[in-house]
């Protein structure tokens, strides 16, 4: 048991290493090429737009991709929540910290709808032709890998599956993040920031619904 645990720790550490190296590499790449000089005459500001991008703009009543696809939206939320919870458990497993049972059960409970959401999203990708034609093998694999990781995590929390399995799958998942679409983990905030820059500077985000009259007006 201790031996498999140590092997799992190594897998996890290598996965974490690969993920962090890749993330840092990409962030640095974006940062040094960020081209922050903006010569335009602003009609709004970027930071409030970014705040809005992460809050108001993500709300289902504002976001058409959400309100037209509410079940998918909520499944997506559940799925992502599950991923965060499962990932947060990895260090716990690694150090074999003791955590109260109640918390373990809450987490397992979060993970169960998340796993089902992941499965339904996967089935949707396979069965809906427009999604199938949009997908490469990586899209299915990434979805399946994350779902599997969540399923194993929840089972481990309920004591059905040994912890070293979670740690190893988690390590493999981390290792795989930079390869395919999962890299959106690394780029999501950055993409949203650049979009906020665009809409913020131009005064589109956050929506104002009024005119800011200039003083020396015409």
């Amino acid at each position: 048991m201790a031996e498999s645990m140590n092997a799992a720790r190594i897998v996890f550490l290598s996965g974490l290493g690969v993920f962090l190296l890749s993330a840092v590499y990409q962030w640095i790449r974006v940062f040094i090429n960020a081209n922050t000089e903006d010569f335009t005459q602003p009609k709004g500001t970027v930071l409030p737009a970014f705040a809005y991008a992460l809050t108001g703009a993500m709300m289902p009543h504002k976001k058409e991709t959400a309100f037209l696809h509410l079940p998918t939206y909520w499944m997506g939320i559940a799925y992502h929540l599950g991923s965060f919870v499962a990932l947060a458990w990895l260090p716990v497993h690694f150090f074999e910290w003791r955590i109260p049972d109640s918390i373990m059960i809450v987490c397992a409970a979060v993970l169960i709808p998340s796993v089902f959401s992941g499965l339904i999203i996967l089935i949707k990708r396979i069965s809906v032709s427009s999604l199938r034609h949009l997908s490469s093998p990586d899209d299915y694999f990434s979805n399946a890998l994350v779902t599997l990781f969540q399923a194993i995590s929840s089972m481990a929390l309920l004591g059905i599956i040994p912890v070293f399995l979670v740690l190893s799958i988690g390590g493999l998942l981390l290792m795989y993040i930079p390869v395919g679409k999962l890299r959106h983990v690394i780029f999501f905030l950055i993409a949203r920031f650049f979009l906020s820059w665009f809409y913020g500077r131009r005064g589109v985000w956050p929506p104002k619904r009024r005119i800011l009259w200039k003083k020396n007006n015409h």
């Binding site: 950055i190 993409a191 920031f193 650049f194």
Partner: peptide, 9 residues
């Protein structure tokens, strides 16, 4: 950076 972010997301 902007293009990189949008291409990878």
């Amino acid at each position: 950076g902007r293009l990189l972010a949008h291409l990878n997301s």
